[in-house]
């Protein structure tokens, strides 16, 4: 959802990938007042990637910052793909206007039926614990880190310090670590 830090998250992944020597492309929706609108960032990392987007069924991972939007993007996931998502549920205005109830349980069932692994993280709670409720994106990044072997923690930390404004750097790094340890404990 626009304003939740998805752009910072994709940018951090891209910076980390470049630090690891990979070729990278991201495809963003930005530049319009997108707060609270659906936003998808595509991130592609490889030896030589060219196009910034991929088609349905192309994603190894979906990193979700909100469950309605996570469910919306499931068609992008590969069979056997992994979903790492915040537990936040923020129904769109259009749903509320028609009294449509976005049931968390149903959303999780849908996500569960599409992915081989689903990790749901109390990202906002952990980010608040890190000193910045807006750093939920960094919590998700930490959780994601534990589930892959492409990017090292060191590169991700360096990428965070390149991308995140200095004012939010410490709390972002803390939020990242809390995401990592949440998964390690679980």
């Amino acid at each position: 959802m626009g304003g939740q830090g998805g752009l910072t998250l994709s940018r951090t992944l891209a910076a980390a990938a470049v630090l690891e020597g990979f070729s990278v492309r991201t495809g963003e929706t930005l530049g319009m007042s997108q707060r609270f609108g659906s936003v998808v960032s595509y991130v592609r990392i490889g030896d030589r990637v060219l196009s910034p987007t991929f088609s349905d069924g192309g994603a190894d991972f979906i990193l979700g910052l909100e469950l309605v939007e996570t469910a919306r993007t499931l068609k992008l996931l590969k069979p056997g793909g992994v979903v790492v998502a915040s537990d936040a549920v923020k129904p769109p205005v259009s749903a509320s206007l028609s009294r449509e109830f976005c049931d968390k349980k149903k959303l999780l069932e849908t996500i569960g039926s599409a992915a081989s692994t689903v990790v749901v993280v109390p990202a906002r709670r952990l980010a608040t614990g890190a000193g910045n409720p807006r750093a939920a994106n960094m919590v998700i990044l930490g959780a994601f880190y534990t589930l892959q072997n492409t990017l090292s923690a060191d590169s991700i930390r360096r990428a965070i310090s390149e991308v995140v404004p200095s004012k939010w750097l410490e709390s972002s790094l803390r939020a990242f670590e809390l995401g990592v340890s949440y998964l390690r404990r679980a």
Binding site: M1, G2, G3, M32, S33, Q34, R35, F36, G37, S38, D56, G57, V68, E69, A71, R72, L74, K75, L77, P91, P92, V93, S94, A95, S98, E100, C102, K106, L107, T110, S113, A114
Partner: peptide
């Protein structure tokens, strides 16, 4: 054309005016 995972009908979220 794969039918993909079972889709929940999900209400659109066009960009609104901010709070």
């Amino acid at each position: 054309e794969t039918s993909g995972p079972s889709q929940l009908k999900i209400a659109a979220r066009p960009p609104p005016m901010c709070p």
